[in-house]
Structure formats: structure tokens, C-alpha cells
Amino acid sequence: MRKIWWKILCIVIIFYVIVMGLMGEVPHLAIINESIRNTYYHVALWLAMTTLLFASMVFSVRYLIKGRINDDDIASELAKSAIFFGILGCLTGSIWANYTWGDPWPNDPKLNGAAVGILIYLAYLLLRSSFEDEQRKARISSVYNIFAFAVFIPIIYILPRLTDSLHPGSGGNSTFGSYDFDNSIRRVFYPAVIGYILLGLWLAELRIRMKRINRVREEIPDSAGHVTH
């Protein structure tokens, strides 16, 4: 029962976000109307994904410095739950775009950047699966992970701002924070981001534990075999 509080906190926050996100007060804006509630899901999912990817990169750096295989496990599982959130973020964004911009996949630099970002991380998973040796896999995919994050940030956050985009914060559109982000949204939005990050950590934690158990299980028959020889 140790360290269970953050899982309870995660469940409470997610329920709070679902209930308050659908029933709470929201500002009334033209065109967006009630779909502004998607901020709690779409925008928060992307922020959670970026945070998880950043954490994944930090663990990759730690692996390269210290060489402990655990750090690489954490990095890869964090990246996996981040990809999961990225796909969810794409889906929620697609629904939102369908009702406000009239097209589920408008030709927008940020959307295309997001698709490329997901491709980069899928390639990361492919790279991981193409090695047999654990240490070698860990070292090479850590190098790629750091490199990928350094390219991912410009694709998602910098390049779209240089061109015209439908998203807020680019092409002369103002950012979210400036005028339409009032307190009623903030009360749900910030908990939502924290809730999703916790959920992602939980997913990653379960898979890391699974991986460690499997590793131990694989080692046991090995060592038994050595004894009989």
C-alpha cells in the first residue's frame, strides 16, 4: 500500500475534470461556443504529452551519464505513454477541428507537425525493437531519444508560429492565455494537466514493473541452466 496517494489523487482529479469539464461554467465565445470545453482534453493532453516526453529525455540523459538500465526502461515507457496521449490529443483535436474549422484534418502546420512528431517517436519504438542486446539497445535509443526531442520541440512549438496557422499563438493569432482564458477555465485546466501527467506516470510505472519482473523471470532459467552445466 505504499505510495498509493498519488494514484488516488490521479483518479480524483480525472473525475473532477470529466465532471467539471462537461458541467462547469465556461465563457461564451463566438464560433467556439461550448466546444471550448475541449480545452480540458485536447490542450491538456498535448501539454501532458510534452511533459512526459521531456521526462523521457531527462531519463535518457541520465542513462547515458550513469549507465543504469533502469533509467532506459523508464525513458522508453514514458515515451510510450506520451505517444498514447499524442494519439488521443490528435483524435480530440480532430473532433474539435471538425466543428469549429469545418474539417477533421485541415491543412495546418501544427497538425502536420504533430503527425511528424508522432512518426518520430514511432520510429524510436522501431529502433528499440531492432536490437537484441539490452545495453546496446539502451545506449543507441537513448542517443536517438535526445536527438528526437530536440527536433520535436521546434516542429510543434516553434515552426508553426513562423507560418500561418489556425491554432492560437501562431500566424498573428493571439495565444490562449491572453484574453479568453478566464478563471473558470483555469480552475479545471491546470488540474487536468496534472491529472493526465499522473495518469501517464501510472501507465508507465505499471509497464516498467512488468518489464522488470519479466527480466528477472528470464534470468532465473538462465542461471539454473548454468548450475547444471
Binding site: 507537425g113 511528424v116 512528431g117 512518426l119 520510429a123 536527438f147 521546434p154 516542429i155
Partner: peptide
């Protein structure tokens, strides 16, 4: 590996 990285 290289196509998505080189795209931007």
C-alpha cells in the same frame, strides 16, 4: 529514422 527528423 531520418525522414521525420529531416522534415522541418
Amino acid at each position: 529514422l531520418s525522414f521525420p527528423l529531416i522534415l522541418p
